[in-house]
C-alpha cells in the first residue's frame, strides 16, 4: 500500500458574521452566476468567525442546499464532529479568482492588441550624450552613432554610418543578436553583456565595415568585406 501526497486547487469561501446576511449575499451572487459552484471543490475559511461544531454543520448543510460542496475547513479552533469535512492546514493562496469570472456572462475575449513591429528606425544621427534604448527588438541607424553616444537594443543593431560610440545588442539575453556597421570606430561593442572595448578590437578593422556577434562566450568582431 502506498500513500502519496497531491495538491489541488480549491475555492475558498470566507463566511462573515452575521451568517444569515452573508448567506443572502451569497444567494444574490449565485443568482447572477448560476451553476458557478457546481462540481467545484470548496474550502470554508472560518478564521473570520467563531462557530461551534453544530453551527458549522448547519452552515455546511445550508451551503450544500445551494450546490456548494464543502471538502474541507480551515481556520477554526472548534472541536469538529465526525462526519464534517476535515480541517486543512498549510494552504497557499494563488492569484485571487475574481468573483466576476462567470462562464455565462463573460464577454468574448478582446481581440489581441496588434503587435507593433519590433524594430526602431533612427533617421538622424545619434549625437554624443544621447542614449537610445529599445529593449523590444532591432535598432537601425541611418546615420552615425557619435563618440559618447549609446544605443542599446534587445535585438540587433544596424548602423549605416560610422559607429563611434557604444552599441549594446542582445540586451536582455538575446545571444543571436549582432551588430552591423559600415564603419567601425566604436568605443565599445557588446552582445548579451559580452563586450569588447575599442582597444580590444583589431586595429586593422578600424574604419571598415564590420559585424560583431557572439561565438560561445567570445564576442567576435570581423569585417563584412
Amino acid at each position: 500500500m502506498r500513500f502519496r501526497g497531491r495538491s489541488y486547487m480549491a475555492f475558498v469561501l470566507t463566511p462573515e458574521l452575521p451568517i444569515a446576511d452573508w448567506l443572502i449575499e451569497l444567494d444574490e451572487w449565485i443568482r447572477s452566476s448560476a451553476g458557478y459552484f457546481v462540481g467545484r471543490p470548496v474550502v470554508l475559511d472560518l478564521s473570520g468567525v467563531t462557530l461551534s461544531s453544530d453551527r458549522i454543520a448547519h452552515l455546511i448543510s445550508e451551503l450544500s442546499a445551494r450546490d456548494v460542496r464543502v471538502m474541507g475547513l480551515e481556520g477554526t479552533q472548534a472541536e469538529i464532529a465526525p462526519g464534517l469535512p476535515p480541517v486543512l492546514r498549510g494552504g497557499r493562496s494563488v492569484s485571487s479568482i475574481e468573483a466576476t469570472e462567470n462562464p455565462r456572462t463573460k464577454s468574448p475575449p478582446a481581440p489581441a492588441p496588434r503587435k507593433e513591429p519590433a524594430s526602431l528606425l533612427l533617421s538622424s544621427p545619434v549625437r554624443s550624450g544621447q542614449t537610445i534604448s529599445f529593449p523590444d527588438g532591432d535598432v537601425t541607424v541611418l546615420g552615425s552613432i557619435a563618440s559618447g553616444a549609446e544605443v542599446m537594443a534587445g535585438g540587433s543593431i544596424h548602423v549605416y554610418g560610422a559607429l563611434r560610440g557604444r552599441a549594446l545588442a542582445g540586451a536582455g539575453g538575446n545571444r543571436q543578436a549582432r551588430i552591423f556597421c559600415s564603419r567601425i570606430e566604436a568605443e565599445l561593442v557588446s552582445v548579451d553583456g559580452y563586450y569588447r572595448t575599442a582597444e580590444e578590437v583589431d586595429a586593422s578593422l578600424r574604419g571598415r565595415p564590420a559585424q560583431a556577434w557572439l561565438n560561445g562566450d567570445t564576442l567576435m568582431v570581423a569585417t563584412l568585406e
Binding site: 538622424s124 554624443s128 550624450g129 544621447q130 559618447g148 553616444a149
Partner: peptide, 16 residues
C-alpha cells in the same frame, strides 16, 4: 580637434 568636435556633437543633440 577631437574634444571640441565631440562637445559640439553633444550640443547639436541638445539643440534637437
Amino acid at each position: 580637434e577631437v574634444s571640441s568636435v565631440r562637445d559640439s556633437d553633444r550640443i547639436i543633440g541638445l539643440l534637437d
